[in-house]
């Protein structure tokens, strides 16, 4: 019988623990397929964050680290210095990367650390139950911003790609979304590009994936995709923020 589809061997057979409609599953598969497409299955280490994807080590079928909250870029730095020829990626959410871990990611970028950061931005803390994230939109209600995020007291949401693109050591920064099939294809291309650049020794690469959180947004999976498109993309425009390889 002809094989029409085969799951990438970079994912284990463990069933995801993610909520229905959550985009982590898609993001995991895109990362896993990119690794396999580039022929790096035997030369890759991932670093999981603290957050919903804390169990990523159960799903990515490669050597994995589970880092302290926000510290994945530092752990990846240590790894990369010992295994400079291996693909080293971190997989981090918005609380992990853009709140508690800003110092680590900013300095990894400044060092031009030759690692790739897969950044999942769903504008909320998922695992702890829907608290305000640094990326929560103004006016967005969460369990710690019950009246909606107030810009006067909480500031505006952090635009990570825009910020990191300013750093000389950042080689490539692109924001993609997982709300449509076309965008998912673009997301995969971006991830593959980041990994390819890393294997060429180019420096720090980051791909930001706008993602849904139906459970904590209080929306159905389909409504969530619409909400992402109507609310997140206008504030977090998709596109390439930096690509030194294309310059």
């Amino acid at each position: 019988m002809a094989v029409v589809f085969e799951k990438t061997k970079m994912l284990t057979d463990a069933p995801y623990h993610y909520c229905p409609g959550c985009n982590h599953g898609i993001a995991h598969r895109l990362v896993a397929e990119s690794i396999e497409d580039l022929g790096l299955t035997n030369n890759v280490v991932g670093v999981a964050p603290v957050g919903c994807s804390v169990f990523a080590y159960n799903y990515f079928n490669c050597d994995m680290y589970e880092a302290p909250h926000g510290r994945a870029p530092a752990v990846a730095t240590g790894l990369k210095r010992v295994l400079p020829e291996s693909l080293i990626f971190t997989y981090q959410g918005d609380g992990d990367l853009a709140s508690i871990g800003t110092n680590e990611v900013v300095h990894a970028a400044h060092r031009g650390e030759n690692i790739s950061v897969i950044f999942i931005n769903n504008a909320i803390y998922g695992m702890t139950g829907g608290q305000m994230a640094p990326t929560t939109l103004v006016g967005q209600k969460t369990t710690t911003s019950p009246y909606g995020r107030d810009e006067a007291t909480c500031g505006a949401p952090i635009k990570v790609c825009e910020m990191l693109a300013q750093i000389p050591g950042t080689y490539y920064a692109e924001r993609v979304a997982m709300n449509t099939n076309a965008n998912i294809m673009k997301a995969k291309k971006a991830i593959t590009k980041a990994f390819k650049y890393q294997m060429e020794g180019r420096g720090f690469t980051i791909v930001e994936l706008l993602s849904t959180c139906p459970t904590n947004w209080g929306l159905s999976p389909v409504e969530s995709l619409k909400w992402l498109e109507e609310n997140m993309i206008p504030y977090y425009p998709l596109g390439v923020y930096k690509d030194k390889g294309a310059e």
Partner: peptide, 21 residues
């Protein structure tokens, strides 16, 4: 490798990453 980390927090996590090998 000598690396001056951004903080002690960064440094110990780099140790964590490197020593795991």
């Amino acid at each position: 490798t000598f690396l001056q980390a951004e903080s002690e927090i960064g440094a110990i996590n780099m140790v964590y990453g490197a020593a795991g090998t």
